[in-house]
């Protein structure tokens, strides 16, 4: 379940539907830039413009991606406290991300082509 907050109900539902098929890919992409723990990913998703996606959505998904071997956890030294466990992409995660990226690009291009194609049919009332 993808939960996006702070938007009108219809927009939120639409955003949720769109995000559902891309959230795992986006998480992999964010982790490819820098390892992070669960809450850090929540913040990065918000910063990236997806709104406030709940921790209850991100963390289970992260757990699934670890089960699938796409990410692995590692300890990161923290200057302010005990070592933190962060998640980083594995080699197979990078391969999967590249494949998903290509698929997404093709899909987005197709959608864009449909949306931008000239429409000569008359509008019905």
């Amino acid at each position: 379940m993808v939960a996006v907050e702070s938007q009108p109900a219809d927009d939120t539902e639409r955003q949720t539907q769109l995000l559902r098929g891309a959230l795992d890919m986006c998480l992999l992409a964010l982790l490819a830039r820098e390892p992070a723990h669960g809450y850090e990913l929540v913040r990065r998703m918000a910063t990236a413009g997806f709104g406030a996606i709940s921790y209850g959505t991100i963390y289970p998904l992260l757990t699934r991606m670890r089960r699938l071997g796409l990410v692995a956890d590692e300890q990161q030294v923290s200057p302010t406290g005990p070592p933190r466990k962060v998640y980083a992409l594995t080699d197979s995660g990078r391969v999967q991300l590249a494949a998903w990226q290509q698929q997404w690009t093709r899909f987005a291009d197709t959608v864009a082509a449909v949306l931008t194609a000239p429409d000569h049919s008359p509008t019905r009332s």
Binding site: H37, Y39, G56, Y59, T80, P82, R84, K85, V86
Partner: peptide, 18 residues
């Protein structure tokens, strides 16, 4: 471990999970 990392950033676990 993950909640502790969030707590180190000042985020309460109960609030984080709703």
């Amino acid at each position: 471990l993950d909640l502790q990392a969030a707590a180190a950033d000042g985020v309460d676990a109960a609030r984080l999970l709703g």
